[in-house]
């Protein structure tokens, strides 16, 4: 049976190892946004031995490119983008820099699943296409790097009870496979 947790980012190993694929997590605290180009820039900085624009250790990175905020709002609609485009970058951030969480939608490859096991990180799914609903849980947003990337800039977000489901846990389990097997009907 799936359990429900309330956690605060940044996350520790203690936070992540208790979670199982299918669990519900309401996440509060500070998280960071990054999509394809921002990830590539982070990896380039690592290769050059330079400092990254935020502390990756324990961090949760949200794969999102929000719509522009309406006047007076911290952020526009902000649901997850498809995560596989970050598959080639995530394992290094997890294994070498200590990233603990990713938020996105859609399948990850085996390298990401392995990195989650090896370095005790979690891949969370948020509901794709629920951008207006999810934006309500974001209390503040500040561009901290690459403003020229527009929606793809890195933002520091303060979230409260952001609704997530554990897709890949630290034990190698994958909700997409488990869930589907449970409801599949053979022809």
């Amino acid at each position: 049976m799936s359990k429900t947790y309330h956690l605060t980012a940044p996350l520790s190993d203690e936070d992540t190892i208790q979670l199982k694929a299918g669990d519900i997590v309401y996440l509060s605290g500070i998280i960071y946004t990054a999509r394809d180009t921002a990830h590539k820039k982070l990896i380039d900085l690592m290769d050059e031995g330079k400092e990254l624009p935020f502390d990756v250790k324990g961090s949760v990175i949200y794969f999102v490119g929000p719509t522009p905020p309406k006047p007076g709002d911290p952020i526009g609609s902000a649901g997850p983008t498809t995560s596989y485009r970050m598959d080639s970058y995530s394992p290094r951030l997890i294994n070498e820099m200590g990233q603990k969480g990713m938020i996105g939608k859609g399948k990850r490859n085996q390298e990401v699943i392995d990195a989650c096991v090896k370095s005790k990180a979690i891949y969370f799914g948020a509901t794709g296409g629920a951008g207006a609903l999810l934006a309500r849980q974001i209390k503040s947003a500040e561009v901290i790097a690459y403003p020229e990337l527009g929606p793809e800039a890195i933002r520091r977000l303060e979230v409260v009870d952001f609704p997530l489901t554990v897709v890949n846990d630290t034990y190698g389990d994958d909700l997409y496979k488990i869930g589907r097997a449970k409801y599949e009907i053979a022809d």
Binding site: G65, A78, T81, G129, G131, A132
Partner: peptide, 18 residues
């Protein structure tokens, strides 16, 4: 969540999806 999202988007004139 998707039904709630549709409600919020329509009542607050916000994009349904980013």
């Amino acid at each position: 969540q998707l039904l709630e999202n549709a409600d919020i988007a329509s009542s607050e004139a916000r994009p349904l999806c980013q």
